[in-house]
Design a protein around this nucleic acid. Structure first.
Lengths: 136, 136
DNA sequence: TATTCAATGCAACCCAACTGCAAAGTTTAC
DNA sequence: GTAAACTTTGCAGTTGGGTTGCATTGAATA
């Protein structure tokens, strides 16, 4: 049993052929992945299957979703230790030139003072600008 | 000339009847406003007119847009002093129960260490959870 | 007053997200 | 081992926010 397969089992997701391929695809990317990216990368696969696979992965905390403001939801692999809890939150960087989105996992989000009685459960933090490739 | 009207003129936006009504509407809200909100609030007005008014306001820095992850773009009034530059950035709070989104203008966004050669120009920071009303 | 330009209203279109349903595949019960 | 029950997949279609083309109206200018 290879690594990809055991990752799925660890998260109690049945390792179907489709899911193995999708997870494999994720591990090969250095940037966040959209549904369209998956459709292009795994062209033989059906859109709705890929969509539901993403939802399954998200619920099982294999990936997390990122709203980068491009109008397209992107997904990226969670870190091994990630539980998608507050302490796992990190910033994301969206390059407005190449439209790629990256996790900045080394930067944790500071504690934020909220108004009285507000309760923080999640966050979507996106920094926009130019990535190293596009900033010449 | 009233306050609403002079606000538009200050930003070099021609104060048409429609625009005055839209800006008036914004000043009456304590939460961020979606296109749909405007359509409901100003039901006699056409959707595309409202859409283009929002775009005009955004370009003129009368309002800023917020991607709160609900799938609907929201807009909120800029502060008087706002230039929509980095130093004007603030956090937003999206209540996952009532779906309302608020500006947390008192909290400025800290400087964030980016990877080498990355350049930050903008940001969309959304904290999600429960607002005071929904957190009982 | 005629001309020009900007704003508005209407009717579409686009596309990402999502859903219903039947077929295929897998697991469980007997 | 086979039938029943459940899960996953593929197809086709819907929904809804966002956006655009174009004709009309209205305001500004000559």
């Amino acid at each position: 049993m290879n690594n990809i397969e055991s990752q799925l089992k660890d998260k109690s997701v049945k390792p179907t052929a489709m899911r193995l391929l999708v997870l494999q695809y994720f591990t090969e990317q250095s940037k966040a992945v959209s549904l369209k990216d998956l459709e292009n990368g795994l062209s033989y696969a059906d859109k709705s299957t890929l969509f539901r696979t993403l939802k399954t992965f998200e619920e099982s905390k294999i990936v997390h979703s990122i709203e980068d403001g491009s109008g397209v939801t992107k997904y990226a692999l969670c870190l091994e230790s990630c539980n998608c809890e507050l302490q796992d939150l990190h910033y994301h960087f969206h390059c407005t030139n190449c439209e790629n989105t990256f996790c900045l996992t080394t930067l944790n989000i500071p504690t934020i003072e909220l108004p009285t009685n507000f309760k923080m459960n999640q966050a979507n933090m996106v920094i926009k600008g130019l990535c190293a490739n596009c900033n010449e």
